[in-house]
């Protein structure tokens, strides 16, 4: 080594650390700026794909922001931190469903899901996991298991008579014991994860479904 024999001065140490630090900072900023547009595009594309997956038969999409007092207004770009829902329409402009994002605690970490609600059928018609860190091979069956995903083809979330709440809250039951249209058939080997999905859907539909049903006309304009 070249500099083992001489003791480096403090100034030289400072110089090298600051020099390397500045160079590194520059590299990181350049990479961040360079990749940002593409990362945002990919993320938006992934969300778009998920929305089309949870609302069967949709062709066009509109985004609605949830304002104060649960009013819905159409927006073209999503403002930072705003709560939004996505409405999907078929080729005749008829509302096919509304995609809603929800999250809650899973087995490993927070689960973020997207589900489609069809006000006409009063049912959940599609489901997709946006973010999950569940155990590979076990908990991640919530994304892949065909029997489990079949739960969300027509999951009953009909409103009670006063239209302010869902009559039967969505709940996960043991695998093979589903008897009612609002129950989710769980997965053996992914008990906690499949139960978490039931809870997330139960909580979210109780909150969102009455509000969306009330504002049905807003979507159809």
């Amino acid at each position: 080594m070249a500099n083992t024999t001489t003791e480096a001065s403090s100034f030289k140490m400072l110089q090298s650390m600051v020099g390397i630090g500045l160079f590194c900072a520059l590299m990181i900023v350049l990479t961040f700026q360079g990749t940002l547009p593409r990362i945002e595009k990919l993320k938006a594309e992934a969300l778009e794909k998920a929305i089309f997956k949870v609302i069967p038969g949709m062709v066009t999409k509109k985004t609605f922001q949830i304002g104060e007092n649960n009013t819905l207004t159409e927006v073209s770009t999503v403002p930072k931190g705003a709560r939004v829902v996505y409405a999907g329409y078929d080729e005749n402009g008829k509302l096919k469903g509304v995609a809603i994002e929800a999250s809650g605690m899973g087995f490993a970490d927070v689960l973020r899901i997207l589900y489609g609600y069809d006000p006409e059928q009063q049912a959940v018609v599609g489901f997709y996991v946006l973010e999950s860190k569940e155990t590979p091979g076990l908990g991640d069956k919530i994304e892949k298991d065909d029997n489990f995903l079949a739960n969300f083809e027509a999951l009953d979330v009909a409103l009670a008579e006063d239209l302010t709440s869902v009559k039967n809250t969505v709940v996960t039951v043991k695998s093979g014991q589903k008897k009612n249209a609002w129950e989710v058939d769980g997965i053996t080997g992914a008990t906690i994860s499949s139960r978490a999905i039931g809870n997330i859907l139960g909580t979210s539909t109780q909150e969102m479904v009455p509000m969306i049903f009330k504002n049905k006309e807003v979507f159809e304009k």
Binding site: M1, A2, N3, T4, A8, K12, M13, S16, M17, G19, I20
Partner: peptide, 13 residues
């Protein structure tokens, strides 16, 4: 940078 980095701060660098 092997001749530029003083050995006292090499790991940090």
């Amino acid at each position: 940078l092997r001749n530029f980095i003083p050995k006292q701060v090499r790991i940090a660098s």
